[in-house]
């Protein structure tokens, strides 16, 4: 019960500030002070209080997009254990459901983008579709590396078994899975080097350009959903890297530290890397797939664990 409450609390409190943390890191790296860490929260609150403007071209689907995107991220976040090795909504084979929930959100975000009839948003949707499709195998392979040793396709069992397997350093397969998942995180959450959330040139954007036409509560939903997605993928990474205990006070502390680490790492990457040319992005993602595939092979050499 307590675990569940902690889970929900983390879910409410952490995602948006994490984005603020990234921005803060980037500002510092650029020699600026930067906005407060809670700035994304303020933004969302402001957006929630606003009215809305809809294009005459759009239909109900434009409204449905943000709602489904947020709902699916929320459910995905309920499936992945956060500061524990159990989640309030876990079930057998939830790994697959998790990935497909993210897919539902993406599907509706993309259709909502196309609903505006704008060439820019079509462009964004098209790129999102392409990169997501390439990221998908990497995500699944990485998750398999985690799940096979546990003999269960459920996050709870898999995370519980990681410390038993000796953690990240004792297990080269797991290391490759982490690498691969890191790339998936950058791609799914639209960060540099795949996408640049801060750019102002619509032609080069992916996620941001898809949601150009959304405003008010709709845009707030999108922002929350986006933050949740980043948060939940970060949570998976944290579990791979840190031995989060099943319960106890250490678990939340370690988890929050880990998530902060993820945010800081992303911030540092964003500060010191340039966005890839769009034509290079597929290579980057295919590279992630290959890394994960090698991880699977490593896992299988000398007999399956």
């Amino acid at each position: 019960m307590v675990d569940g409450l902690v889970h929900v609390a983390l879910l409410i409190l952490m995602p948006l500030p994490m984005l603020g943390l990234i921005n803060r890191v980037k500002s510092i790296a650029a020699g600026r002070k930067g906005p407060p860490i809670l700035q994304p929260v303020y933004d969302v609150v402001k957006l929630l209080q606003k009215g809305a403007v809809y294009s005459r071209t759009t239909t109900w689907l434009f409204v449905a997009g943000p709602i489904v995107a947020l709902a699916s991220s929320l459910l995905a976040a309920l499936i992945v254990p956060l500061a524990s090795t159990t989640s309030p909504f876990g079930f057998p084979a939830d790994v697959f459901v998790f990935a497909y929930l993210l897919g539902v959100g993406r599907f509706f975000t993309m259709t909502a983008a196309l609903d505006t009839g704008s060439a820019f948003e079509g462009m964004g949707a098209s790129r999102e579709a392409a990169y997501a499709a390439l990221a998908e195998p990497a995500l699944f392979l990485a998750l398999m590396i985690v799940c096979i040793p546990a003999h269960s396709a459920s996050f709870s069992d898999a995370f519980a078994s990681i410390p038993a397997a000796g953690g990240l350093l004792r297990h080269p397969g797991l290391l490759l899975a982490t690498l691969s998942l890191g790339v998936v995180l950058l791609a799914e959450a639209s960060r540099i080097p795949v996408d640049d959330p801060n750019t102002h040139l619509e032609l080069t954007m992916i996620h941001e350009v898809m949601v150009l036409d959304h405003g008010g509560p709709d845009f707030a939903f999108i922002q929350i959903g986006y933050a949740l997605k980043f948060f939940v993928l970060g949570a998976v990474l944290v579990h791979l890297v840190l031995p989060i205990p099943a319960s106890g006070w250490m678990a939340p502390v370690l988890f929050v530290a880990g998530q902060a680490g993820v945010a800081i790492t992303v911030g540092i990457i964003e500060s010191f890397m340039a966005r890839l040319r769009l034509t290079r992005v597929p290579q980057f993602l295919i590279g992630a797939c290959v890394v994960a595939a090698v991880g699977v092979l490593v896992l299988f050499t000398g007999g399956r664990p």
Partner: peptide, 12 residues
Amino acid sequence: RREVRQAATWGC
């Protein structure tokens, strides 16, 4: 209770 308006798609 808020204002909901219709407009053309934002064409940048």
